[in-house]
Design a protein around this nucleic acid. Sequence first.
DNA 1: CCGTACATACGTACCGGTCAGTAACATTGT
DNA 2: ACAATGTTACTGACCGGTACGTATGTACGG
Lengths: 202, 202
Amino acid sequence: MPSDNKIEASLSAAPAPKAADKILDVARDLFYREGIRAIGVDEIVKRAGVTKPSLYRSFPSKDELAASYLRKYDLEFWERFDEAVATHPGDPRTQIIAFLTRVGKRTQKPDYRGCGMTNAAVEYPERGHPARVVSENNKIELRRRLRAMAAAMGAADSDTLGDGLLLLIEGAYISGQLFGLGGPAAAVARNADLLIEASLKK
Amino acid sequence: MPSDNKIEASLSAAPAPKAADKILDVARDLFYREGIRAIGVDEIVKRAGVTKPSLYRSFPSKDELAASYLRKYDLEFWERFDEAVATHPGDPRTQIIAFLTRVGKRTQKPDYRGCGMTNAAVEYPERGHPARVVSENNKIELRRRLRAMAAAMGAADSDTLGDGLLLLIEGAYISGQLFGLGGPAAAVARNADLLIEASLKK
DNA sequence: CCGTACATACGTACCGGTCAGTAACATTGT
DNA sequence: ACAATGTTACTGACCGGTACGTATGTACGG
């Protein structure tokens, strides 16, 4: 609503990041790396170089800030997903394998901390919590798309295959942060390929 | 270490539970359902009907209490696992499917809150945290056993199959608490069976 | 060209509550 | 007597959240 860039678009390179943006950037980083419950608002405003009232002018509560962080995470997630999809148009099987190959690599990095969505749902089991709602919706949509892709592949039981792929993905997220390099997540793409192959022959 | 039951075994029905036991029982329940970070020590001692000094006489810190909770959880986990194994001696494939069938059912229950081990690792990403150490060791052992069982099945690539089963299991834990009834975790046994079948033919 | 009135954006300082953990002492049961 | 437990009160740090004052720019009337 209160967003208008006016004339300032060209010329100046740095658009002078607003307090809310800095807060959200820092929150994204800290919430993901350390966990939402582990990080207090004081820590966030300190690292963002702003003050607490600034945070509460832009975000009604810490819970809502966490939800905003997850909405940002959600956008980035679908960017990665759609990128793998766009690379192999009309070939859902290769799309999935391409996505999972990247997931497998990403989850092997030493500072990998799992899926922000999944982690948030673990941290906030309470139904209706703002952060959890974002997380649940993301997973529901992912399940829907995986099942649709399984159907497009011509799977005998597409819902089962779609769910199986979701299980493998979630397993990779968790194993990635548990085992790090050389963990089970490295085998996610290979196992998905085996599972797909086994699900196709009618 | 400091456990000896002495003569008190017969006669009295209620063995008068010690404070430490009551604390650990309550902690197990609350930590699992609400999360470790979400529960304060005051809440635990209040519900256990004991006082805070009693807690700190038996447990050096909250972190160590959390670790004790997970050690207890670890024991119960291997009880469930070994029970499925013992039901089908010498048949690792059926053992796994039996275990996963139960997992699939358990994760569908509305109050299912995921794997306590996995959740703790998400809550405490810091390396070396007492709770995380217990969790990591449990997962390492589980991976070892799954790979061994995959080898016993005669899988073409037993390490890959073992890791694939672990991914499915972790996925079921997470999906169970995310989706509840009718979620992807319901399909974990079927997918595992497909994956095993696909991995056996050399 | 000035003055004022208003909105935006931010900081200082503070709130009550809860956090994990402890000191000192009283009570109980065997 | 001894060991386990309870009682009470406390600490210092941190929690999420807020009341209130301040700087800056900008629009508009004279």
